[in-house]
Amino acid sequence: MAEIKEKICDYLFNVSDSSALNLAKNIGLTKARDINAVLIDMERQGDVYRQGTTPPIWHLTDK
């Protein structure tokens, strides 16, 4: 899980924002549900936040 978090942070640092599906595909996974639990956990920790569009767009925080 730590490896996936690191990949998410690296990708969002370079791209600035992404949907869960696009993010999953760009870090080597196939479906948004493969990454949603990790994104929600990271959101609780304050590492990422989502804009409430459908589907949500994920961003890194300034943390």
Rank of each mutant, 00 (worst) to 15 (best):
M1F: 14
A2D: 15
A2I: 08
E3H: 08
E3P: 06
I4V: 08
I4Q: 07
K5H: 02
E6S: 06
E6K: 13
I8T: 02
C9H: 11
C9E: 13
C9L: 14
C9Q: 11
D10R: 13
L12V: 02
L12S: 08
F13D: 13
F13V: 12
F13A: 15
N14C: 10
N14L: 11
N14W: 06
N14E: 14
N14S: 13
D17Y: 14
D17A: 15
S18T: 06
S18R: 02
S18C: 08
A20F: 08
L21W: 12
L21R: 12
L21Y: 11
N22I: 07
N22C: 06
L23S: 06
L23H: 05
L23I: 15
A24P: 04
K25Y: 03
N26H: 15
N26P: 03
N26I: 09
N26K: 12
N26M: 07
N26L: 06
N26R: 10
I27E: 09
I27Q: 04
I27G: 03
G28V: 02
G28C: 06
G28F: 01
L29Y: 11
L29V: 11
T30K: 11
T30N: 14
K31V: 02
K31I: 00
A32N: 09
A32W: 08
A32C: 11
R33W: 12
R33A: 15
D34W: 00
D34T: 02
D34G: 03
D34F: 01
D34R: 02
N36K: 11
N36T: 13
N36G: 07
A37Q: 11
V38E: 11
V38D: 09
L39Y: 02
L39A: 11
L39K: 11
L39I: 01
L39E: 11
L39G: 10
I40L: 14
D41N: 04
D41P: 06
D41H: 01
D41E: 15
D41G: 07
M42P: 04
E43F: 01
R44A: 14
R44V: 07
R44G: 07
R44T: 12
Q45R: 07
Q45P: 00
G46M: 04
G46W: 00
G46A: 01
D47M: 14
D47S: 11
V48N: 08
V48T: 03
V48D: 07
Y49K: 14
Y49L: 09
R50N: 06
R50E: 06
R50Y: 00
Q51H: 11
Q51E: 14
G52K: 07
G52M: 01
T54E: 14
T54R: 10
P55V: 08
P55E: 12
P55I: 03
P55N: 13
P56G: 07
P56L: 02
P56A: 10
I57D: 10
I57W: 05
I57M: 13
W58G: 10
W58E: 09
W58C: 06
W58R: 09
W58I: 07
H59Q: 10
H59T: 12
H59F: 07
L60F: 03
L60G: 05
T61P: 06
T61D: 08
T61Q: 04
D62Q: 13
D62M: 06
K63G: 05
K63N: 08
